[in-house]
Design a protein around this nucleic acid. Structure first.
Lengths: 145, 145
DNA sequence: CTAGTTGCAAACATTTTGCCACTAG
DNA sequence: CTAGTGGCAAAATGTTTGCAACTAG
């Protein structure tokens, strides 16, 4: 966890960017929270450890981290605000419970590679990326009457 | 086309709702435009046939039509505003060109039923819905240098 | 030092609300 | 008539911008 943080920070530092309070704080938040956070959540969570900072800075930091491949942006279909999560490792999707709003991660075997190849063959459209989220009712909520 | 319009309108009328200028206009727009429209697009397109109306009314009409299953809401991952399209027939997805912003519809054979069953079995999460959009470069844009 | 970063205030884009007036059926 | 609709102004929400001031390295 801590080594992941240093890894990211020293990478950024090596590229000539500064390591500021907010930068450290935001990256740390994403490392300790696997699930996607909205800008507003980041702002409120950050407020618990850093006393004064401006929301603009956070928006700019999110843009910066996205730009430099540290985090990626996600748009959930049932929400207005964008979310962000660490751009780490394997490609995954989300299960979103419409009742309790809980979010789980899920990986699909083979994912959509086959489909995307088909799309290229049949339409000449080269898929570089896709967004896929599942909406439904989680196990806990199904148990409840 | 026209019969589809009457079908929808008389269905709504039968359920006790009124057929107003805006309602007719908005439904007609969705019937003649296969691809998803944003509220702002609806407002501007509507302006070409109806002289005076308020944007609030359009937002309310979109909420109404969604509520009553006439249209469905889509959130594209690269855009801010929500989009809407006729909730007609078969489930499909979209190919979104990141260069020219063109949107094409696509149907996937078998879709994700199998995956969703797996999710239920392995996690107890009951998927009721999913969102899937493909981002990439369309054939036309690939041809261009 | 100086480029990268921050704060502040204000603008922006999209959508929602309250409240009262209006009209389709 | 009267519930369903519409208009207007204002608020709410989430995000971006311009610009001057500040600071990490």
């Amino acid at each position: 966890m801590a080594e992941r943080l240093n890894e990211i920070l020293s990478e950024l530092s090596g590229r000539g960017f500064r390591l500021t309070r907010i930068r450290r704080g935001v990256v740390e938040l994403f490392i300790t929270n696997a699930l996607p956070l909205s800008a507003l959540e980041v702002i409120s969570m950050l407020g618990q450890s850093i006393t004064t900072f401006n929301k603009t800075t956070v928006y700019r930091e999110l843009a910066f981290l996205k730009e430099h491949g540290v985090i990626k942006e996600i748009q959930f279909p049932h929400e207005r605000a964008k979310r962000y999560e660490l751009a780490t490792g394997e490609h995954h999707h989300h299960l979103i419970c419409l009742k309790c709003r809980k979010v789980e991660e899920i990986e699909l075997e083979g994912d959509l590679e086959e489909q995307e190849k088909k799309i290229l063959r049949s339409r000449g459209f080269h898929v570089t990326n896709h967004s896929l989220e599942f909406l439904g009712i989680c196990q806990t909520c199904r148990w409840q009457a």
